Simulated scan of single mutants.
Amino acid sequence: MNDNRLPHEKGFHVSWDQIHRDSRALAWRLSDITPPDGWRAVVAITRGGLAPAMIIARELDIRTVDTISVKSYNHQTQSAPIVIKSPDMEVIGEGDGVLVIDDLVDTGKTLEVVRNLMPKAHFATVYAKPMGKPMVESYITEVSQDTWIFFPWDMALQYVEPYRGKD
């Protein structure tokens, strides 16, 4: 079959239940590699990393949670990433014992910017695409590079045309 679907039509739809289950699975994986002194903090990459980071912080009983805001998308168009808000670097330092959490690593450009600020942190995402995989130490599910992931915070329930046939 000739696949003439547009990129957004090759979608991987993630429900709230699925992101919760997959984030918990990531927490369990991270629990197995906890540093001797424990995880000191979680840094969520906003906005997509907020929900997974909250779940992981809860599961691993990590009380210090901060954020880093990196803008790399304008709607669905990717651009050069820039940091628009940093965590408290006096607490985070170079990232020893720090988990950096995001929902997805796509090309890895966002994580590359963050890694330059926290080179010793452990980078983990719930989902990973092949180009970005080298930028993370831990992830749960790999999807193809040309798959668009639809997260629950980006969706609303609505009618969808059948894949084949209209009657």
Rank of each mutant, 00 (worst) to 15 (best):
N4L: 14
N4Y: 13
R5T: 03
H8F: 15
H8N: 13
E9A: 08
H13C: 05
W16T: 08
D17N: 13
D17C: 10
Q18F: 05
I19F: 07
I19K: 03
R24V: 13
R24N: 09
L26Y: 01
W28E: 09
L30C: 00
D32Y: 05
D32K: 15
T34I: 00
P35C: 01
P35K: 03
P36W: 09
W39S: 05
V43E: 03
T46V: 11
G48T: 12
P52Y: 11
P52G: 12
A53F: 11
I55W: 07
I56N: 08
T67E: 15
S72E: 00
N74I: 11
I84P: 00
D88N: 14
E90T: 15
E94A: 01
G95N: 03
G97R: 06
V98Q: 03
D102K: 06
D103V: 12
E112Q: 14
V114P: 00
V114G: 00
L117Q: 09
F123S: 01
T125Y: 05
K133P: 00
S138A: 06
I140A: 04
V143L: 15
S144Y: 13
I149Q: 06
F150N: 11
M155V: 11
Q158T: 13
E161A: 09
E161H: 07
E161Y: 13
P162F: 07
K166W: 14
